[in-house]
Computed example of a mutant assay.
Amino acid sequence: MTQRYSKIIGTGRFLPNSPVSNDELAARLAKSNIETSDAWIRERTGIAQRYIANSDQTTSELGAHAARAALEMAGVEATEIDLIIVATSTPDMTFPSTACLLQAKIGATGCAAFDVQAVCSGFVYALATADALIKAGQARTALVVGAEVFSRLLDWTDRTTCVLFGDGAGAVVLQASDEPGILANRLHARGDLSNILCATGTVSHGVVQGHPFLYMDGQAVFKQAVTVLGEVANEVLDGAHMTADQIDWLIPHQANIRILQATAKRLGVSMDKVITTVDLHGNTSAASVPMALDVAVRDGRIQKGHHVLMQGVGGGFTWGANLFKF
């Protein structure tokens, strides 16, 4: 019996509106007597700009734009999709799922569609799920999307968090193949660390209960992220019987340039092999990994046959990795 694999055959991304530079953001915050600067933000994060959705732009809309770009690259019609998974922490509404709303927007009908919520690890979780369903014969062509309007969770009076995040979407088309594609996935979570990165607000009887904005213990998140990203990279490499020197490209979650640098150092991977886009769009949570992937595919760095290791880490506390041959 022929081994069934899943391969990434198309990528896409979408960023809303014009970029907001650090200087522009600092000017906005100054109106509320919040002091920050381009130098302060760049030194601590590596971020130069971010994109912010309008109030009427939804997660499903951003995701649909990215999905169409991925479908076009793949040469696949929306009607051929038989599985849609959207990774997001900022859904359009409580229900139905953002995946169902995106399905309608792109003209796909009848296929399975659901959301995955693992915050900044969401895309890695969603890709692993789609890979498993394809390998099990439950789907042939899957659309996997990471999309966020994270700006709506931010306290714009807290400069330690509001300068970090942005909005956007990334997508891939995954298809069954006789050739190796996704080689290994590893996923983890520690709910006992949920308090270091969370947005606890909920709606009950029409009233917001709890804190409506994102909270982050920056030092604790940094420490955990660097540790677990190094560990899960080695786990996924072991799962594929590979070593770090066989990686052509490393795509960590685009949260902070210091985390990217520390992860590469732990693995012994040169920064020349690390796809870095955090400077262009900030931390876009579940959208950051697929957007970085799309950038590197479209600019020609990632070529057919290259081995790529992608990593996510975020609230939950969650983390994971995917290793694939492009």
Results as ranks from 00 to 15, higher is better:
S288M: 06
G107L: 09
V269K: 05
I9F: 01
R44L: 06
G316H: 00
F14S: 05
V308H: 00
A113H: 03
M216Q: 10
K105W: 09
I275W: 02
V274K: 14
A171S: 13
F165P: 01
A112C: 09
E235A: 07
S18E: 06
A126V: 08
D299Q: 12
D23C: 09
E148L: 11
L154D: 05
D56H: 15
Q57Y: 08
N283V: 08
R140V: 06
C120T: 09
T88H: 07
D23P: 09
V278M: 06
G316R: 02
G46M: 10
G312I: 01
T202A: 09
C100N: 12
L214V: 04
N54H: 15
G12E: 13
R28K: 15
T36P: 14
N17Q: 13
V207Y: 07
A74C: 12
A112I: 08
A255G: 15
G166Q: 01
K304P: 13
I196H: 02
C111G: 05
E80F: 02
G316Y: 00
S89I: 03
R190Q: 14
V228N: 10
T157I: 04
D248P: 13
D279Y: 12
I257W: 08
A48N: 15
A128F: 04
I302D: 09
G268K: 02
A70N: 11
V144G: 08
W249Y: 07
